[in-house]
Design a protein around this nucleic acid. Structure first.
Lengths: 199, 199
DNA sequence: CGGCCTTTTGTGCACGCGGTCAAAAAGTCG
DNA sequence: CGACTTTTTGACCGCGTGCACAAAAGGCCG
């Protein structure tokens, strides 16, 4: 498309990644355009010209966040026993909290943060979030279906119900962790959940 | 203290309740002082004079929210079998979502909303939220301890771990429900969790 | 080399925000 | 009645925001 003209002076992908980190750690409202301008080392006009307004920029970043997360999720579940992998999926945010107690470090799940801050009054954000939820459930339910067939996971509930429960738990864990968390207690709770799924 | 002077022209408690509903449904950032002034039918100065600035006003409302919730929680768990009561505690937000799909109606758990929006950069909010979490765990763990002793609930995990898990789930459920929820699927997930706690 | 197209740069602006203040009003009490 | 206290009222302020725009700059192509 852009066959000619002055070349961009910054790396668009890298700028998006930096913006993702900023939005992730501070949230939408608490991140000002000026913050972005400072952190990305570009000028106001360039930002608007490249990414549109602040809202589109944020939504683009959220989409990138989810795409990255989804890839990791699929990889984690595609081979080996399912329950240990799921245990890791849940344990990760619990441990992340311990490490990243500094300010300015991403906290919680960005999908969850978006749910709380934007979804109630932003239809497009709601769509992105709802789609992410659906994808999570689909991926996890597929894995659980295999695990049920293999005798690893109880058939007391449908894979979909179990996946839905895991979505609730991981979202709740990420959220609660923002208020400070006893890591050991959180891991014990995760174990209790995983044990309840065992056949 | 105020033995004399011009009497207040509005009901303070009622104003706080209305503010609670507004903050609950829109969140902190999306509720402007002007919104409050309009909804409470009082003037700006009266608001600041009575409740302090917007942030204190919000925190007061959150505290009221939690006190009310805690009272209901204690009542629900103090008699009868524990698991059906816990099932209701979890099922309520799932069903609330179905009814309250209109705009302007409270959505999700206000503690969870506060966690996402204020806790990262507000120490006082973090304290309120952390205290609420601790109280929830304490109340639920006490009930679970009784239920374990009575043979209703499995002893495969400690009551504290189980209570922590229930906190994660109820917070996650409330959060996810804001993005729209299949009520039946959510209830199935709740059942899967409760079944996993059964002795 | 010169015209062209695109991005960059930096200023400028209007709006809505949270918050303040001084004067008027409405009670109480001696 | 008149002094005193507290609340009400409504105008007002400074600030930061999201956003637009005009001019300059940089690289491609004929």
């Amino acid at each position: 498309m852009a066959r000619t003209g002055r070349p961009r002076a910054f790396d668009k992908d890298q700028a998006l990644e930096r913006a993702l980190l900023l939005f992730w750690s501070r949230g939408y409202g608490a991140t000002s355009v000026q913050d972005l301008v400072d952190a990305l080392a570009l000028e106001r006009g360039s930002l608007y010209g490249t990414f549109g307004d602040k809202r589109s920029f944020y939504l683009t970043a959220v989409q990138l966040y989810w795409d990255t997360y989804e890839r990791q999720l699929v990889t984690a579940l595609e081979a080996g026993p399912v329950l240990p992998a799921l245990r890791e999926v849940l344990a990760n945010p619990a441990r992340a909290q311990e490490i990243a107690s500094d300010v300015g470090v991403p906290q919680g799940c960005m999908i969850g943060n978006t749910t709380a801050e934007l979804v109630p009054h932003d239809a497009e954000a709601r769509e992105i979030v709802a789609r992410s939820h659906a994808r999570f459930i689909q991926i996890v339910a597929d894995a659980l279906r295999r695990a049920q067939a293999g005798g690893e996971v109880t058939q007391a509930a449908t894979p979909e119900a179990q996946a839905q429960l895991l979505l609730f738990t991981v979202q709740g864990l990420s959220l609660v962790s923002r208020a400070g968390l006893d890591t050991a207690a959180a891991l014990a709770a995760v174990d209790a959940l995983i044990d309840g799924l065992r056949a």
